[in-house]
Write a protein that binds this DNA or RNA. Structure first.
Lengths: 320, 320
DNA sequence: CTGAAAGCGCTAACAC
DNA sequence: GTGTTAGCGCTTTCAG
């Protein structure tokens, strides 16, 4: 910038004015500055600007894994919203590891992001207190965090309840539930929805038909249930990875899965699902964040997004 | 930092030393500083540090779309490598728009990233010249850029050739090619591979069996070919989105697709593919970039990654 | 072992 | 319309 000023024969401030499109610069002078900028390949340093101005025009996003289609959908939506607000997105994958989540968030904070969107891997977010107090807003997405901040989650229990009720409507009385580890918020909520559906139908919950744990073990859990003396006639799976694991066993039980996935419609039969809206989740969280960044005070908001049941065949089969 | 120094009764430099783990600080003093840091919730400002130090410990990645599984795989791999080098990843989606690509790259440059990985949407990268000359290394990934910089691409032609040859081996003589718009580098390369396979087998290339264009039109193209007087007996699809579009038509022609995809093994028959390795692409590009960042001079490197044919049933069917 | 001063690139607040 | 000065938070340099 100094070089540009020297080359154009003006003061630094004038270059600054031209770069920022401020008015009050003689057209001829401005042109001289612009040509110097062009000639020298000058580009404004955003970090220096942020240092002075207080705003970095960037937001941080912590998800579980970019390579997971659900989160990459979230990511894309956040990116689009950020773009609209002239902000850059820093993002990172926690891999469901609370330590890594914390590390990422703190890294973003060191970068002085204007705000944070976090899909919590851990339950404790006290480490965020200083930043929140310092005025950096944070939004928890997909799961609630350990702090009373803005939160956007899906109607996990309601969605699961609707999915299971759908199966019951076709005459099933023994519906199994295979879900992710119960320590994960969404998994626990979905299990709660399953129990509610049974209760509403006046059916007892048979614990031998409930399995929770890492998706890789879902296939084995299903096999165990099917060889027991009173096997299930239908299945509800608690997330996309569990659904895939079950499908890979080759067992084709009447079923509804939580989470939609590419090609669900091309399998035979098509896989009925309770679909979430990853883009909607990301967009909602991002819009909320930018409202906060722009100074919206008010108490923490808690948004719950609806799910949608998509019948494709596998969930519309009666018991044998 | 000033506050910490005041609170601990030391000078700024001492705080700086403690924060950076520099040796030569009295243990007692250091402890006093650390407790002040804790008490005040102090966190070093990375942008200020970068301003002074010259390095920002961040790299930029421009892909086409994070929500595309291929690119999210690339993204994840780059993120992991960056993490290993203590660097943060800034990433953005160009949506195949050269203007947007340029804008993203320039934004990253204003952020003074230490290096760039770019999946080129456009063909002209002269706008990068100033940065390259200023010493910011760039690596082109998946497609060559308009500049002689480091490049990591897949063996598109070789992979397509292998896939088509595979079909020919089962007795097909009329193999169709449906691919993405020929203006896209990878699409053109794969078409070249298709032609090479036919040539090597001594077969003429029937232009009525070749269709290129946006994936949404792939289904219609196939329908047209199949109702013509001399329809193809097998099909080679030029990328994952085309493969999906074709599968959705319900037509089940013997086929091999470029790009692997989730559930390809669960369709009936399983879809044979020529698989690329997105993680390998990202990892290779990132490793190369960090070598450059660490000062490796030497001429631009051009790496070509192999593809892998995965037979699953659809490509091992003879003509009717 | 510790500290004071200068300056990274930029802009806000005032001159002129 | 244009220029000067100070300072954002940090590290580097040099002096105690």
């Amino acid at each position: 910038m100094k070089d540009v000023a020297a080359s154009a024969g003006v003061a630094l401030k004038t270059v600054s004015r031209v770069v920022n499109g401020e008015r009050g610069v003689n057209a001829v002078t401005a042109e001289r500055v612009r040509s110097a900028i062009e000639r020298l390949g000058y580009r404004r340093d955003e970090s220096a600007r942020g240092l002075r101005g207080g705003r970095t025009s960037s937001v941080g996003l912590v998800i579980e894994d970019v390579a997971d289609p659900f989160y990459s959908g979230v990511s894309r939506a956040v990116e689009d919203v950020a773009l609209g607000y002239g902000s850059l997105l820093l993002s990172g994958s926690s891999g469901e590891d609370p330590r890594r989540e914390r590390e990422l968030v703190l890294t973003f904070c060191s970068r002085r992001v204007d705000g944070l969107i976090i899909v919590p891997a851990g339950a404790d977010h006290e480490y965020l207190r200083p930043e929140l107090d310092a005025g950096t807003p944070a939004v928890f997405a997909d799961r609630p965090g350990g702090l009373d901040a803005d939160t956007v989650i899906c109607d996990n229990a309601g969605g699961a309840c609707a999915g299971v009720t759908h199966l019951l409507r076709y005459g099933h009385r023994r519906v199994a539930f295979i879900g992710d580890s119960a320590s994960i918020f969404t998994a626990a909520e979905r299990l709660r929805g399953y129990r509610r559906a049974l209760a509403e139908a006046g059916l007892p919950a048979d614990e031998s038909l409930i399995a929770t744990g890492p998706p890789e073990r879902a296939g084995a859990a299903l096999a165990r249930m099917l060889t027991a003396q009173a096997p299930p006639t239908a299945l509800f799976t608690g997330n996309g990875r569990v659904t895939l694991a079950v499908l890979r066993t080759g067992q084709r039980l009447p079923m509804v899965g939580f989470d939609d996935f590419e090609l669900a419609d091309l399998l035979v039969p098509g896989v009925s699902v309770v679909a979430q809206d990853p883009a909607g989740l990301g967009r909602t969280a991002a819009e909320l964040l930018f409202r906060r960044i722009q100074g919206d005070p008010g108490p923490a908001e808690h948004v719950e997004l609806p799910t949608r049941l998509i019948p494709r065949g596998s969930g519309e089969l009666p018991p044998p």
